[in-house]
Design a binder for these strands. Structure first.
Lengths: 148, 148
DNA sequence: GCTAAGTCTAGTAGATTTATAGAATGAAGG
DNA sequence: CCTTCATTCTATAAATCTACTAGACTTAGC
């Protein structure tokens, strides 16, 4: 499950991508267009700035902008900053591995094996989609219907 | 992120799958072998029973057992009971769709498009893996290393 | 130095994860 | 039948996390 924080963060980043090269964008502008609670967005953008994905300018004429080209920032990057590891269980995370204390034998853990597959599938999608991809993909991608 | 609840629930179901056909298994037995907090497991198994995946017997010689063959229960089923929809955002859930209130135009939402892909990938894996599959897959599946 | 902007500190309501206590139920022995 | 005791089941509460809210503080430009 994607937290509201990450969902809002992604929407804000896409918004900034659409204004790429136009200078600083107001938090209030983003909050209003994307219908994100203003104060919550404050905190989210600050976090993304601290992690190096945004630059900001205080005072009149200030606002936020992308710190790097939108094509060089992946969805996975943003989700990791705001929600932590993509992996459904810490013991299959490649970037922030942590043993599950309750697991006696990791190699034999059936849950782990399935979750490994899930992690790889999710990471493949999110790490290969950039903000630029998202912003340009105007109409939603054709929906593949697996009726399962 | 898989909650502890779902992780424990899956481990317990796999445990019961390995004892399939042997009659009732004690909560205490499952809790000890799988290292799951006893009382938390009580609540989890009860939930799975109410949803029809387990049967229980009280009193001496009582315990829990699978209500249906392990090959007919998917990992997705169990995760949905314990953690809710697989979809990372409610607006891409096939089984429990809900509009995102903050989203003006769903069809144009870039976040939604990516999360749709994630949902489909996750559902494909979890709905096509059964408890029987998990229990038999003794050594972990060969790990595909995408270094991304 | 006024005003518009981001930044920081603190706090609240509700969900999640776990723990504690004990009531309800059913099988077995007498 | 009646007691005993092993079980599940129920209810409640503590600890932690999530999604916000309020407001004071800081910086920059006119």
């Amino acid at each position: 499950m994607l937290s509201s924080k990450a969902k809002y963060g992604l929407k804000a980043m896409v918004h900034l991508t659409r204004r790429e090269g136009e200078g600083a964008v107001l938090i209030a502008d983003i909050a209003q267009s994307e219908r994100i609670p203003r104060k919550f967005l404050d905190a989210i953008l600050l976090e993304l700035k601290i992690q190096g994905y945004l630059t900001s300018k205080k005072g009149k004429g200030g606002g936020y902008a992308l710190a790097r080209p939108s094509a060089s920032i992946s969805v996975g990057d943003i989700v990791r900053v705001l929600d932590g590891p993509l992996a459904p269980v810490p013991c299959v995370s490649r970037q922030s591995y942590r043993r599950c204390e309750d697991c006696a034998d990791e190699a034999a853990c059936a849950v782990r094996a399935v979750m490994q597959e899930v992690r790889d599938a999710v990471a493949t999608i999110l790490d290969n989609t950039t903000l630029a991809d998202m912003a340009s993909r105007k109409p939603a991608a054709p929906v593949l219907v697996y009726d399962i």
